[in-house]
């Protein structure tokens, strides 16, 4: 399978300055991440808020500058491109935002919103634009005469459809879905997820699907990557990670998801992951999860674990992995 995107040792640090402008430290939002996305597939990126998952996505599509590392898009390094070349790259990589309320300009009609990327990236006549926009609206399940309306006339789910139409308007190869469903109602979420899947099949789109809802990610993604404090701690095929999580953080995350199935309902009396995500400002030695990990030992406090393959492509960054396997019954 051909990799559409390959990320190698990607770092994105945001400098923190004192009042006088002197450098005080850095927020290590993305701290050495390597993975790849196959053409036509979906990678789901999960983690708690503040773990750097959105920053990673936005750095990949070059909305952020790269601190260090390489991003290969179709085999070409795009981590340092600028100017006209960057614009060209952006026409192939689009984004769907989380909040359908603030991501659509209230002063613009739907037609202008969807036509904006067309005007920037493709030279079309006005008549062609109208035709294109009405075509796009119908593809996302809206009506062509909706194009004269303003964003406030639509509900949350319909607005997200407008955002999707805008993203696919320039025929991109890759779309970053940055929590596209977390602001929507349950009954609407399924509509949007199904629409995204339909479009993926139709246009052979590749998605990076950022979310914190594990069940939904499992439903849509082929590969799940779990992030914690700027690093990927576990990555593997969707079913592997979902049904057989290996990293203690993934296991805790999985257990904390409230489920409806009778035998899987979240039991509040069993072990619940305590504590908060530490600040990405504090530089600590060793595994970033060791402060909250129930299995942490001396080695975890000193060394940083690396992603290790178990032979099936399921990679985990944990020292305690082998030990955990032995008393797995206790954990599950």
């Amino acid at each position: 399978m051909e990799h559409l995107i390959e990320v190698e040792g990607l770092y994105k640090h945001f400098p923190v300055k004192t009042f006088w402008g002197r450098k005080k430290g850095a927020v290590k939002a993305v701290d050495g991440v390597s993975f790849y996305i196959d053409k036509g597939k979906t990678v789901g990126l999960v983690g708690e808020s503040g773990c750097g998952k959105s920053t990673l996505g936005k750095t990949i599509i070059r909305m952020n500058d790269v601190t260090a590392g390489r991003i290969l898009f179709n085999g070409e390094d795009i981590s340092k491109v600028k100017g006209r070349k960057l614009k060209e790259i952006h026409s192939k990589m689009q984004i769907i935002f989380q909040d359908p309320y603030s991501s659509l300009d209230p002063h613009m009609t739907v037609k202008d919103i969807i036509a904006e990327p067309l005007r920037v990236y493709r030279k079309l006549s006005e008549a062609e634009i109208v035709k294109e926009v009405s075509d796009l609206l119908e593809q996302v399940g809206l009506r062509a005469d909706d194009m004269k309306k303003y964003a406030y006339e639509f509900s949350g789910g319909q607005r997200q459809r407008i955002g999707i139409a805008r993203a696919i308007s320039v025929k991109p190869e890759f779309i970053l879905c940055d929590e596209p469903i977390s602001a929507l109602d349950v009954s609407i979420q399924a509509q949007v997820v199904n629409l995204l899947k339909e479009l993926q099949e139709k246009y052979k789109l590749t998605y990076l699907f950022v979310a914190h809802d594990l069940t939904m990610v499992h439903h849509i993604a082929d590969v799940i990557a779990v992030m914690y404090l700027g690093k990927i701690v576990e990555i593997g095929s969707s079913d592997d990670v979902y049904f057989n999580p290996k990293h203690p953080y993934t296991q805790a995350l999985m257990k904390a998801v409230p489920k409806i199935e009778k035998d899987k309902v979240l039991d509040l009396n069993r072990d619940i992951l305590e504590g908060d995500l530490p600040s990405p400002l504090d530089t600590q030695k060793g595994c970033s999860f060791c402060g909250r990990c129930p299995y942490a030992e001396e080695i975890c406090k000193v060394n940083v674990p690396e992603l290790k393959d178990d032979g099936t492509g399921h990679r985990t960054a944990c020292f305690m992995h082998k030990k955990m396997q032995k008393n797995e019954i206790k954990f599950a």
């Binding site: 509900s155 789910g157 609407i188 997820v193 199935e261 899987k264």
Partner: peptide, 22 residues
């Protein structure tokens, strides 16, 4: 209840959303 992805019913099946909006 049908619009929520279950853990058992696999990922291949399509979610059944409620059509329309509130």
């Amino acid at each position: 209840l049908k619009a929520i992805p279950g853990t058992e019913n696999g990922k291949k099946c399509k979610l059944e959303p409620i059509p329309g909006s509130v």
